[in-house]
Amino acid sequence: MKVAAPEGAEDALSRSMRGDPVAFGDLVRAHQAMVFSLALHFLRDRALAEEVAQEVFLDLYQNLASIQSATHLKFWLRKVTCHRSIDYGRRQRPHLSLDDVPEPIGPIGKDAPSDPLLARTLRGLVASLPHKARMVVVLRFQEELEYHEIAEVMEIPINSVKSCLQRSLAILREKLNRCAGDVRYEATGR
């Protein structure tokens, strides 16, 4: 999903590169939700996600000279957040397993537009995926990135992204159906 960067973002970036701290603050505010959410959905720990977000922005400050445009900035932030989160995730012990995920109480409502319990269960199931697969899922469904964009951010081949995503979705579908006790999701050909 390549969105043309608004003029304001380019302006804030160029002012930040000239050393304007207020503009850098604006840059942080503009991207903090993306960075924080990526880390939070990957790590499932608010404090750690905040730590990762702060480190990413500090890293950005030190590497502002290498940023070429607002679009590049977004790509750079995603990439650094991914790698930092994976590093933190590796250090995080114990690894969250499916047994740690709370099971939904009773059958899940089939037509509920927004089910907080289902969302929580899904986030837990995503957190039980291996690191690489988890980050691919988060980038795909939080940031709505295309396969090639995920491949660029994670520095892996595009075919790995495709297979990883397919496998992850199959696992999630199976686990969720097992949790729900009925067939909620059918396998799709994607």
Binding site: L40, L118, A119, L122, V126, Q142, L169, R173, L176
Partner: peptide
């Protein structure tokens, strides 16, 4: 589909 539920679950915070 599962994909829509995932989009909702993994919305930006």
């Amino acid at each position: 589909p599962l994909e829509d539920d995932l989009r909702e679950a993994l919305r930006r915070k």
